[in-house]
Design a protein around this nucleic acid. Structure first.
Lengths: 181, 181
DNA sequence: CAACACATGTAAGGCGTTACATGATTAA
DNA sequence: TTAATCATGTAACGCCTTACATGTGTTG
């Protein structure tokens, strides 16, 4: 089983859900397309980690509701004792920064600005979601408590990205005024 | 051409290098195995973005030195005007945090500790490398200037990771003493 | 009327890892 | 003597994206 499979189990351990809904909720943590998720869910059902039933809906297409089995929960709990893998980040911006000396100052500024805009937009989305959540109100050890932790994680990384781009832009823009003197 | 190809061009735009050396230097920014790099370099040579010559070494195996061509440099410069792709991060820790409510407090602490240890070790490596580099000494627009920026980027993200794990551990450990009362 | 959200699935191809294959030198 | 570093290459397989395929209901 790969990490995506465990990610699906992790969501289904909280509540039953359709493949489509799993795909949407998974995006922030482990981006995957529906074409990857649907076959995986089928396979996991054949391995008896999941069960499914068709739900007939009016004004919407029918959907297949997946539920986790006892075997699935056991598998998920075991995974929590397997040594943690290192995170993998692949950021084009690192490579573009590495060869930025080959381009003009205006383009360099535009590249960093585009990343900063992306991060600011992302952070704005977080603030909305977290507005009604305060640590004191959360009971320790509940799913909601760990949701809060995960949001904090996302906020920390996004904020540090914004700080770096801001620093970069200050230095680059200072250079622009210097060049115009 | 994919991002890895541009990454190879980016390194070769600075100095000629062997495939093996490119593989090593690429790891922090765009992790890739030699089995992926060697065929790519061959292909890029056939497209005339690179040229190569065999270097005979004593007490070491022979190596193939790659150099970037004019065509390769043009291609790399063009890439710097292509809209920036979003970074992709896949972190098992996010998924494990999401289902951490299913495990015991001691295991939760151990998971976060292992990530913190990994990040602290990584940061220590950076401090050594950057010890002899100070922004004031760097001439703007040089490759070394952008190296410094890249190190800053790595330090920012690693530091924010350490801050999050530290916060997490404080909360989890406070809970541990509460449970022992 | 076009685009988007909901909903599921398959097929093809590109990207990335692991394993196979070889071989010298050096450090623990 | 076992492992690590240097050095290049191929083969097989798994992961991920893009495209193909279908259909309804809502919003602009």
């Amino acid at each position: 089983m790969n990490t995506l499979s465990y990610a699906l189990l992790a969501f289904l351990a909280r509540e039953q859900s359709s493949g489509y809904n799993l795909m949407l909720r998974l995006q922030p943590f482990w981006p995957a397309k529906h074409s990857q998720i649907y076959p995986l869910l089928s396979h996991m059902e054949s391995e008896e980690y999941l069960t499914s039933t068709w739900i007939v809906q009016c004004e919407k297409p029918d959907k297949k509701l997946y539920s986790i089995t006892e075997k699935g929960i056991r598998k998920l709990k075991e995974w929590l004792y397997v040594p943690l893998a290192d995170p993998i980040t692949r950021d084009e911006l690192s490579m573009k920064t590495f060869c930025m000396w080959l381009t003009d100052l205006e383009n360099a500024i535009e590249i960093i600005e585009s990343r900063k805009a992306h991060l600011v937009k992302k952070l704005d989305g977080f603030q909305l979601k977290i507005a009604d959540k305060v640590l004191e109100d959360l009971k320790f050890g509940t799913p909601e408590f760990y949701d809060y932790m995960l949001f904090q994680k996302a906020i920390f990384t996004t904020t540090s990205g914004i700080e770096w781009t801001t620093m970069m832009l200050e230095i680059l823009k200072a250079q622009r005024t210097k060049q115009n003197d």
